[in-house]
Design a protein around this nucleic acid. Structure first.
Length: 425
DNA sequence: TCTGGGGTCCTAGGACCC
DNA sequence: TCTGGGGTCCTAGGACCC
């Protein structure tokens, strides 16, 4: 019987590149094809861990995050290559370009995977035909394999793309959930790792089906808000839209490094921080943002890791500023033991043009501290223009209460930026 | 010879304000 | 005299993902 398509549900694809870095290297050097290949951090140093490996290497038990020496023991003929991120970025761009030929609703999740909403893309064929066409073109044009999941929402599409690798296409309909999704172990769920899986076992939950039927209160007690969400997902409910913009909104930018050896010399640690600060500064500037909070990460010899951060009154992205704040944090919180890893991260990123205005306001605060008696409305107007004076007027900036008042109207003033209003959505 | 580097999201406690 | 409750900000840690 012919369906009338009453309120058609969404059709979401999840495109997942198969062992991406290794596949890109094979595309560059076809003599590597069919061989056990691993991409590893830095083969000669201790940060040598497996980032990705080919299916041939996986057959010998080689896995992602395994230390290189262990991988070589398992697979002596393993070919090891250093990562070439420029190649992966280029391949990634090529892939997303292909995806965007079917719809503009493409949401990159990482360098090698993305969601597509093809609900309105029927001109290109049925969902399966579209998936086959995408997979074929990525293979022919880029020489790269991918797996694709087809489903009514993101969670099911993501789960589906995982079911057949490499070069799989898997449909996961609502009605397939009990037979296909529910028998899987909980750790196959996106968002459930080792710890959560263990916790779930303590209340007798082993499969996704168990999660689907679990008591909500019990889940909430055990896992918080995430418990509720897991149950929703396990029942195939997920309303998150495909958001092409999501990838643009960076929340933090950082750089960290495992030191070539454990270091307890203060001067060496500081010069490491300086080079990390330079990278962070460059990345902040490239994105045209400043960091309002700056944090450092210290991992000690015994792998105990601490983070320490500081909210700033002046957002920063200059190398010298980043380095100096990071050094202060280090000197204040480092316990003197040997350090294995150091990192710097900027949080609470604000757009540069917006932050300039913020800088002006903060510099006003500083001035105010120097000359607490001089801030009449007219002097403010002179310095900051009409715009600010309206705010100031409504807060009665007088001879005495300039500092406190200025701070509070700064906040209001900042909230009034259209930029901030947009952020909330 | 143990275990990288880039992130996101959530939780929880204390300070502070009303 | 011995004391509420809610909201927000800040900081730190942890789980998870690719």
């Amino acid at each position: 019987m012919k369906e009338m398509y009453p309120k058609r549900g969404r059709v979401i694809l999840h495109v997942d590149m198969n062992s991406f870095y290794a596949s890109v290297e094979m595309a560059y050097d076809p003599t590597l094809k069919g061989k056990p290949l691993a991409i590893a951090g830095n083969p000669e140093e201790r940060r040598g861990i497996i980032v990705t490996c080919s299916y041939e290497a996986r057959k010998s038990g080689v896995k992602t995050t395994m230390p290189l020496w262990e991988a070589k023991k398992l697979c002596p003929q393993l070919i090891v290559r250093k990562p070439h991120f420029d190649r992966y970025r280029a391949a990634s761009m090529g892939m997303f370009e292909i995806l965007r030929q079917y719809t503009s609703l493409v949401e990159p999740v990482s360098i090698d995977e993305g969601y597509m909403d093809i609900t309105e893309s029927f001109e290109f064929g049925t969902p399966i035909e579209i998936a086959e066409s995408i997979q074929k073109r990525i293979l022919e044009q880029l020489d790269l394999p991918c797996s694709i999941g087809i489903a009514p929402n993101k969670f099911l599409a993501k789960t589906a793309s995982d079911l057949k690798k490499p070069l799989g296409i898997t449909i996961l309909r609502k009605r397939d959930i009990p037979a296909v999704l529910w028998p899987l172990e909980t750790d196959k769920m996106h968002g459930v790792g080792k710890k959560t899986a263990e916790k779930l076992k303590t209340i007798g939950i082993h499969t996704i089906g168990d999660v689907a039927k679990a008591n909500e209160l019990q889940l909430k007690t055990l896992l918080g808000i995430n418990g509720i969400r897991l149950k929703e997902r396990a029942n195939g409910r997920d309303l998150r839209p495909v958001d092409p913009e999501a990838i643009e909104e960076f929340k933090s930018i950082g750089n960290s490094t495992t030191l070539p050896r454990d270091i307890s010399n203060q001067q060496e640690l500081i010069s490491t921080l300086e080079s990390l600060a330079e990278t962070v500064s460059i990345r902040l500037k490239r994105k045209n943002v400043l960091a309002t909070t700056l944090g450092i990460t210290i991992r000690y010899k015994d792998r105990k890791t601490i983070t320490r951060s500081k909210k700033l009154s002046n957002p920063v992205n200059q190398k010298e500023e980043v380095a100096s704040i990071a050094e202060q944090l280090l000197l204040k919180h480092w316990n003197g033991n040997s350090v294995r890893l150091l990192g710097i991260t900027g949080y609470d990123l604000v757009a540069q043009d917006h932050a300039y205005k913020q800088l002006d306001l903060f510099s006003y605060e500083k001035d105010a501290q120097k000359e607490p008696l001089l801030h009449t409305l007219s002097s403010l107007r002179e310095k900051y223009g009409e715009n600010i004076i309206e705010m100031a007027g409504s807060h009665k900036v007088d001879d005495k209460h300039d500092i406190g008042t200025a701070t509070s109207f700064n906040k209001d003033f900042l909230r009034s930026f259209p930029h901030r209003a947009e952020e909330k959505d």
